[in-house]
């Protein structure tokens, strides 16, 4: 296939970026989207040019490091996949593809398509854990947890921290990311004890990082590779308000 690419190039955090045009003649359908970028980079190297920098690592949809806007959609046209799981069979010969970094005030661009998502780490640092010190813990089966509860906690815990929810949200809200962690931990008996403090601290950090507010468009769930439900956000709001009132 012949593919026309328009890719965001930006030298440094401070520099002004721009879209640049590239053409690839020999793309095949079984190539993954990132292999297609590898191919482009091979050509750039042969031409003596600097490669397009993009984040990626596991290339199997679980590490959460990859992620770009493809034709304006976080992780591209397929629902619930990461960029690395997208294959070129989703495109047609002659297509023009716009590739941009995930954009949000709280995700500064480092170079080209690479962004700084350390704001996610800082929100977890604020309280996204159970304060159980390592090494000594009671027998695992001493706290039975129903099958349903464990599965529900897993649904929230499955978040890979890619940031697609933020990138796709018109407000650049991190509500889905934060609420998934809050819900994962509050559903489990071990995590209930610190629930009030956790929700307050994580939300305070979310605000400090400059993420926008959630206005319930539910765009985040649509793009989420792990299909994290917006009901997590409702749960977060409930936990937050409950903490305030009671």
């Amino acid at each position: 296939m012949k593919i026309f690419l328009k890719i965001w190039r930006q030298e440094t955090r401070e520099a002004k970026g721009e879209m640049k045009n590239y053409v690839l003649d020999d793309v095949t359908e079984d190539m993954s989207f990132l292999s297609m970028l590898d191919l482009l980079n091979e050509k750039l190297i042969a031409a003596g040019e600097r490669v397009v920098e993009f984040d990626h690592d596991c290339r199997e949809g679980i590490c959460g490091q990859c992620g770009v806007m493809i034709n304006g959609q976080a992780h591209g046209p397929l629902p619930h996949v990461t960029t690395c799981q997208l294959h070129m069979r989703s495109f047609n010969n002659g297509d023009t593809i716009y590739v941009e970094p995930f954009r949000a005030k709280s995700f500064p661009v480092i170079r080209d398509l690479k962004i700084d998502r350390s704001s996610f780490d800082r929100m977890i640092q604020a309280g996204g854990y159970i304060s159980a010190s390592t090494g000594q813990a009671p027998e695992a089966n001493s706290i039975p947890i129903s099958h349903k509860t464990a599965e529900a906690a897993f649904d929230s815990a499955a978040c890979i921290g890619c940031g697609a929810c933020v990138a796709t949200c018109k407000n650049s809200s991190a509500a889905l990311f934060v609420s998934a962690k809050i819900t994962h931990l509050v559903l489990l008996p071990q995590g209930k004890i610190e629930a009030d403090e956790r929700v307050r601290k994580m939300i305070a950090q979310m605000n400090e990082e400059g993420f926008g507010h959630c206005s319930n468009t539910e765009a985040c769930e649509v793009e989420c590779p792990q299909q994290i439900s917006v009901l997590n956000i409702a749960r977060m709001n409930w936990e937050f308000n409950k903490g305030g009132f009671l």
């Binding site: 089966n141 129903s146 897993f154």
Partner: peptide, 22 residues
């Protein structure tokens, strides 16, 4: 064995049987 205890304490949502046990 201690590792399973440790992970459960941290909130790792391991698969459970219907009775609630791991």
């Amino acid at each position: 064995a201690s590792l399973i205890d440790q992970s459960v304490a941290q909130g790792v949502p391991f698969a459970r049987e219907y009775g609630g046990y791991l």
